[in-house]
Design a protein around this nucleic acid. Structure first.
Lengths: 273, 273
DNA sequence: CTTATTAATATGATAAACATATAAATGTAC
DNA sequence: GTACATTTATATGTTTATCATATTAATAAG
């Protein structure tokens, strides 16, 4: 059916896609999906400099062993994310990085695949540090009763998991992390912003992939800080939230994120250096 | 050359694109650009419900008077932004809104074009309220000397514009707004985060389009609050930043944004109700 | 040396044909 | 009559060929 180049392309690039792709990434299947991933990863990985022309459609057809329409449709997808732009007779050129839609899950995925992990991790953590205290501040003020109930429930779940011993250590830790995530999500939901929710989802997914997957093999997890310390810091956030002290709740969340960031950095540096 | 339907499509949808498009939107030209804008706007404008199948490629070819490849490439672009997904034999369906890349400039542009302005405005202002105080907090702590110099310069420019009378009132106001923007951008730059910078750029562009363009005709501008009050609030932010009191600077910025939001809401409600 | 003109190049767009995946319709067996 | 296999219809997936168009480079005219 398809040429050998294509089969290889599918198996190497696409076959493993579902396994380690960023959550939230639109699943693009088949030959087109393979071409998109291949080109996206290469471009994000600086195979060509911004301003430089990538190979012509015809050349890429030959190289990848696919029809021209596949290349063209791949160009459209990648172009929709701000990576490239085609102009008649001038070819298809890589756009300056400022045009790249860095907040797009696919672009994040390609950055991770391309190995741009350290810079991305630092930036992601910075976003959390800037964002989450503000989320808690606003949530403390504007949360509806339903939203407050969800936060309360999330906290109770954290407490329950924390206090319930489990012979299966890994399982308990998994539950702990899950409860932790819901705690943060509950505050975010209280703010009731579609834009912030999406931003948070992308950030979380990318962080999860960067930290969980890559560091799990070395005994690290997203939430490295000890459960005791983590629980104390979370308790402070919740307590101030219940007291409706937005400033104090915000500060508590900043201490929590700051603590988590230091550990993430330590663990990651240890791994990558 | 092209059929009549196409010519109409280009003139109506595409001809006016450059004028009132969101800054940062990738300029998609020609027949394809027209098709993308047309379909994107329709989908975002709820012409079809999530889960529902939009017309087949063949039908859209007839309706728009374009070749199938144009429709397919348009589908790819719109699909890359999470709006639709095609599956063999099942057709092309609108994805649930949670999949839409709301942070994408094009999607924002389509929301504005589709008239989803009130909900979008509220959300955009909420993002600023959550984000900017955190930006100032972090900037106050981590800013390099260069970054501090830029902030200082921005403040001096604001002061200069504020204190310099100008017979041309509109021109002075324009300069004031421009200096204001640079003030906020300078803090953001100090945080040194590509992700936050992009987020801010998209937010600003959308807010600018929503407030400036739409409200200018009615005598409103982005920065509605009186110059005196605005200047005082900005002064507080800068003063606390210079004192390196991150908490105080953060609070000052929150007061400033909160004040601006109240005015924006008032003005907009007045206009849209 | 400058300016038209022409030629080459790569994308823009159309058309026709066949492949493939999915769902609906049909038929068969128990 | 229900369950399961088969067939058929449908819409997208993919290839190929051809022409249009816009831009750059080469060339010729002044």
């Amino acid at each position: 059916m398809y040429g050998r180049a294509v089969a290889t392309l599918i198996n190497s690039t696409f076959g493993s896609r579902k396994a380690d792709a960023l959550a939230g990434v639109i699943e693009v299947r088949g030959i087109l999906g393979a071409a998109v991933t291949e080109l996206g990863t290469r471009i994000v990985g600086s195979a060509w400099a911004p301003g430089e022309a990538i190979p012509t459609e015809a050349d890429l057809c030959d190289e990848m062993g696919v029809g021209r329409s596949v290349i063209r449709e791949a160009f459209r997808i990648i172009g929709a994310k701000g990576l490239i732009r085609s102009r008649t007779s001038d070819g298809t050129r890589v756009l300056p990085r400022s045009e790249w839609r860095l907040l797009d899950p696919d672009v994040m995925d390609w950055r991770i695949k391309a190995g741009d992990t350290v810079a991305l991790l630092h930036d992601l953590l910075k976003v959390r540090l800037v964002l989450e205290p503000g989320v808690v501040h606003t949530a403390t003020i504007v949360a509806t009763e339903d939203a407050r109930a969800r936060i309360r429930t999330a906290w109770q779940t954290m407490e329950h998991v924390y206090r319930t011993p489990d012979p299966d250590y890994a399982e308990r830790r998994r539950r702990f992390i899950s409860a932790d995530l819901e705690f943060h999500r509950a505050f975010l939901a209280a703010v009731d912003s579609d834009l912030l929710s999406q931003l948070f989802a992308v950030i979380e997914a990318a962080l999860g992939l960067l930290l969980d997957v890559q560091m799990a093999a070395r005994g690290y997890t997203t939430h490295m800080i000890g459960m005791e310390e983590s629980q104390e810091l979370h308790a402070a956030v919740f307590a101030e939230f219940e007291r409706r002290d937005a400033e104090a709740a915000q500060s508590a969340m900043r201490r929590l994120i700051g603590r988590a960031i230091r550990d993430a950095h330590d663990g990651f540096e240890q791994r990558t250096l």
